[in-house]
Design a protein around this nucleic acid. Structure first.
Lengths: 150, 150
DNA sequence: GCGACTAAGTTCGCTTGTTGAACTGACTCG
DNA sequence: CGAGTCAGTTCAACAAGCGAACTTAGTCGC
């Protein structure tokens, strides 16, 4: 009777949900993107229960989003670094950022924004069709069987 | 000692996580996007526990992502329709779709794709900077304080 | 060499959330 | 009148999340 797993469903959203649908997980990734690496850094940045943090980091490593790397031998200490897969996940967080900024502040504007590291310009993530560059509209898109590769 | 809420954190990712970080919730939204509206449609499409589905639909309505609308008077029956806020959430699901497709099928390609409703062309969502149209790279972006609007 | 400190977890008792299955109530249809 | 439909609710067992305290292996200041 354990929590239903989605990680073998034939749908990208379901599999992704299995990972980030976990409590705390997207926030851990956010911290990783903003440069945190060590257990205690994550812990104090998020104020998450240590046991939960342990479980999440273990899962993220198992999934190949983070890598557990020794940064000193004695006493043995490890830090958690983003892998390519983990870095690619930034796109999802950026989409969440945009949607959250647009729809989750009814009263005022959110106190934080994304900025270009060089120019300082405010950056607004947008989800588009790779081919056309047009904003992806729900109404124009449907879910379909993949074309057979044979 | 209840589950830590993120919905008043000053970060768009945190607030979004509070919503979609919930088990089942992104999948319910996916079903909503593919046209499901009724309680039993969601239930049988996902095979989710009915009690959980009730709780999630209630939450999504409270958050203004869905609307509970009577579609007949007697007996009173309700369906759940996407609001503008809910429709806007498609961007996040699209980003999850893309990332999941790219990184969560190690063995083969995913069996489902997004297609243009008219042309049938396969559509690949991409997260870009709204200004430049360039793919958003983690390394070029940082989190910063919002410019004061005064 | 002794006590305080540090980093990275683990353990524990308690509360909340999830699960599957069965049940309910108001109606309609044959 | 009995079966069926829809939109939930209820229940008991179990899993997961919570905060706080504890552990382990080493270093640093004195």
């Amino acid at each position: 009777m354990r929590r239903t797993r989605f990680d073998d469903w034939p749908c990208p959203i379901a599999r992704a949900t299995d990972l980030i649908g976990d409590w705390w997980t997207p926030l851990i990734m956010r911290e990783a993107f903003s440069g945190q690496r060590r257990f205690d850094e994550f812990q104090s940045a998020l104020d998450a229960p240590r046991a939960v943090l342990t479980a999440r980091l273990k899962r993220l490593c198992a999934e190949g989003m983070l890598e557990r790397v020794a940064y000193q031998q004695s006493p043995p200490r490890y830090e958690y670094r983003l892998t390519d897969k983990g870095r690619a996940f930034w796109d999802v967080l950026a989409a969440m950022w945009r949607w959250g900024s647009d729809w989750l502040w009814t009263d005022a504007a959110p106190p934080v924004v994304l900025k270009d590291r060089q120019t300082g310009r405010v950056v607004r993530p947008l989800v588009v069709d790779e081919q056309t560059g047009e904003h992806l509209d729900v109404r124009t898109v449907r879910i379909g069987r993949a074309p057979s590769s044979s």
